[in-house]
């Protein structure tokens, strides 16, 4: 039976009714209607559902929704504000780091969490950091390029 659950999503407390067996991903999509996080496999293998849990990238399909009640949850919908896109989002647009776009919210969340902790990455660091994200369209060239550009941009504006 669905049970009430308050989650702090993108800085906002949301009261939701959630089945005990729901993953955080199901909860975000079906209940909070934040559909930017994608279900590519529901097995933790593709990374399309990546969100930040207390700043760390996690596959939300492998998190029990009810266990996340004391965490700060950041989804793709929480990155841009009225002033515009986040540096990572902007870099993906400018460097053509996206095609079909289904893996992109997950990749952007992985990159965002990674760059917060690693402001001066090498290209190899970036490739390791997105090792949990599958993309079938881009071949990763422009994704890596975008993340490196975002890192530079964030360092300059820091």
């Amino acid at each position: 039976m669905k049970q009430p659950l308050t989650l702090k999503i993108n800085g906002e407390n949301r009261l939701l009714l959630v089945e005990p067996f729901y993953s955080l991903l199901d909860c975000l999509r079906d209940e909070a209607r934040l559909t930017g996080s994608k279900k590519g496999c529901d097995e933790g293998d593709c990374g399309a559902c990546t969100v930040l849990l207390d700043g760390k990238p996690v596959t939300s399909c492998l998190v029990l929704a009810h266990s996340a009640h004391d965490a700060e949850i950041t989804t793709i919908e929480g990155l841009a504000d009225v002033d515009g896109l986040s540096p990572v989002q902007k870099a993906f647009v400018e460097h053509g780091g996206l095609q079909c776009g289904f893996c992109i919210p997950g990749l952007i969340m992985s990159a965002t969490g990674f760059l917060q902790a690693n402001p001066e990455p090498t290209e190899e660091d970036v490739r390791f950091a997105i090792g949990g994200n599958l993309c079938r369209c881009t071949g990763y060239n422009r994704v890596v390029e975008a993340i490196m550009a975002a890192a530079a941009e964030m360092r300059e504006s820091a």
């Binding site: 559909t35 996080s37 279900k39 647009v93 053509g96 992109i104």
Partner: peptide, 17 residues
């Protein structure tokens, strides 16, 4: 940049699911 880039990087692009 793609005409749909903004929708896709913000998670607003709507897929069938």
């Amino acid at each position: 940049p793609r005409v749909d880039a903004y929708e896709k990087v913000t998670g607003r692009a709507a897929y069938a699911s």
